[in-house]
Write a protein that binds this DNA or RNA. Sequence first.
DNA 1: AATCGTGGTGGAACGTGTTCCAAATTATGC
DNA 2: GCATAATTTGGAACACGTTCCACCACGATT
Lengths: 203, 203
Amino acid sequence: MSIANSATSEDVGSAAQRERRKRILDATYELAKSGGFDAVQMRAVAEQADVALGTLYRYFPSKIHLLVSALGRQFEEASARLNERDIPGDTQAERVLYVLKRMARGMQGDPKLTEALTRAFMFADSSVTNEIHVVGMAMTSIVTHAMHGGVPDEGALTEEDVAIARVIGDVWLSALVAWVTGRSTAADTATHMEKAVHLILRD
Amino acid sequence: MSIANSATSEDVGSAAQRERRKRILDATYELAKSGGFDAVQMRAVAEQADVALGTLYRYFPSKIHLLVSALGRQFEEASARLNERDIPGDTQAERVLYVLKRMARGMQGDPKLTEALTRAFMFADSSVTNEIHVVGMAMTSIVTHAMHGGVPDEGALTEEDVAIARVIGDVWLSALVAWVTGRSTAADTATHMEKAVHLILRD
DNA sequence: AATCGTGGTGGAACGTGTTCCAAATTATGC
DNA sequence: GCATAATTTGGAACACGTTCCACCACGATT
């Protein structure tokens, strides 16, 4: 997995630069995983990645860019893992819920990491559009893949499919924020998602 | 220590205290309206409200509490205004869209204010649960009221109604965040909401 | 009226994101 | 191999949210 940023997918720069970029994203990941959003401090990232603060800012113009880039890497990996297997379930709703629950389990296993990345996503402004778009596409891809039961043929997506996937993604995001910020429990979130998916996908 | 606590615009405290609280919220509103999230600086709010910084923090323990309280006031006013009139439209979807578009128009007229309040809402953690709840209830109330065409009888809400209202609120929130952060235009947002509502309310 | 206690004031100080800069190091073209 | 350009470094400095503190003001109690 050539780290860097497959999102905006720059395989650009010298080997040393790609190496620095990887170290920075790795450090971000580790700090987020162990301490959440607040623990990802720019000075700490720089130190752990063994670069100067100015260099960190040269690679990622803000803490938000940094975290959203890390989130993009995560989502692309998750999307790739999920899309290479068939999704169990007899209805669209079942399959979508299967996938969402799987993701939810993964996130609950790393709550600090999830908190850091979600917060960054929510706080991102238009300067982060590219990185955000990567995340949105991965989410849509995951849901539509589940709706279609794992067929690798992605060409057969109707507008309706994409609209549905976006709505589900929206609900998922709201639920995620509520969970991350401690305003709802994991169980509440699961229940809410279940209701929402059945409401939207009545097959 | 009975003051501070906002959430549901309490009538607690002396007249002087209520007056201070009002001045603070007004100052917050003005600053947010003219300069957005970044312009709501605690020192600036304190100065404009003519209170000391320490006093500001005594009334609102953080910038987020302050902004979410202001958002709550806004939403309660909007909810009250909308709930006293009948909603036009022949179907649930039409009526809900009418209300959402009305709110959207109001928000687009004050983009900075909307940005400030939305950002705060997204960033709020569990210490802001009470204030957040006020906003969520107002949103749910607005949507269910629209669904039922303006009947004042709120007792007839089914679980399903509330679930639907919550899902619509979620989509609305995600769309709002995308718009506020400059990742989608007002027109995109309107289109997306329309699709979503018709998807959820197929009457 | 004197006292007491709650809350308000003014301002210093700290933490962290961000910016800036001069010096050192590395990469590139000739 | 050298001159020049580009990048990295180390660290100072700044902005703003937040905390803290010593002192002041005013209303209630005696």
